[in-house]
Nucleic acid binder design. Structure first.
Length: 253
DNA sequence: ATGTCTTATATAATAAGA
């Protein structure tokens, strides 16, 4: 089962690129973030024509998450207690695996109200996993976590140190969350630095000033079944790209 | 500090969020 995550930055604007990529990459499951539309405005018909079922949880203007799947989607749960009115998590069962699409808060600036919300969100996310069960269960939580896990995951350690997305408070929050029993599937297969999933529109893509802030986290129970993981930079090079590009994880499941 | 993109409001620039 090939599972992917992609922050599309508006599913409406990105539908052409999404359509092209689904046909080319043929993932079985795709977690989307920043769909930026109300649930009722999600392009269910267009996605259906491409061979995917979809579960969406959106809101006006901002945020919004979805799960696309070639396999049947069951037990859909929209949101969780830590979202504080923002559509940032959707959960479903696919092929016996609990799949969550997650859009963690950006946090804007260190010390801001939005930064405090980001830290609260992570604490609530951990509590939510505790409620779901033990890490021996088959679970995948994929999305835009708005944190680069370690020094290999930013374009310039000195420049990024202490900035949003690479701050010690964020690393503590991420660790507390992943200590539930999650493994960064990308790092099971790639140990090197300089592999990014997001590049700021303002600094551009060409100089590779990116960060690896999108991850497919898998439960320890699934670790042995993870046969591959990669980032597909193709969509970031297209016309009118999202600022993020898809991250993929292959599971023998 | 700057750069750009998307959405909303409202029909032209701005603001907010990222």
């Amino acid at each position: 089962m090939l599972i992917a995550t992609w922050n599309v930055n508006s599913v409406k604007v990105r539908l052409p690129q999404l359509s092209v990529w689904l046909k080319k990459a043929e993932p079985d499951v795709v977690c989307l973030q920043e769909i930026k539309c109300e649930t009722g405005n999600f392009p269910f018909d267009e996605i259906g024509e491409l061979g995917y079922e979809a579960a969406a949880y959106g809101q006006k203007t901002y945020n919004g998450v979805a799960i696309l799947s070639k396999l049947p989607i069951e037990n859909i749960v929209e949101g969780f207690p830590g979202e504080e009115g923002q559509s940032r998590l959707i959960e479903a069962t696919i092929n016996g695996i609990t799949v969550l699409s997650c859009y963690a808060p950006n946090g804007q600036a260190i010390g801001s109200d939005k930064f405090a919300y980001k830290l609260r969100f992570y604490e609530a996310l951990r509590r939510h996993l505790d409620g779901l069960g033990h890490s021996t269960m088959p679970l995948v939580i994929a999305g835009d976590f708005n944190i680069a896990p370690d020094e290999r995951d930013v374009f310039d350690v000195k420049k990024c140190a202490g900035d949003i997305g690479f701050h010690p408070d964020e690393h503590r929050a991420l660790k507390r969350f992943t200590d539930w029993g999650l493994v960064d599937s990308f790092r099971l297969h790639e140990k090197g630095a300089g592999h990014f999933s997001w590049w700021d529109y303002r600094t551009g893509y060409d100089n590779n000033q990116g960060m690896r802030i999108d991850q497919v986290w898998i439960s320890k129970g699934l670790e042995k079944q993870c046969t591959g993981a990669r980032i597909d930079i193709g969509p970031r090079k297209l016309e009118k790209p999202s600022d993020h590009t898809p991250v993929l994880c292959e599971l023998d499941a």
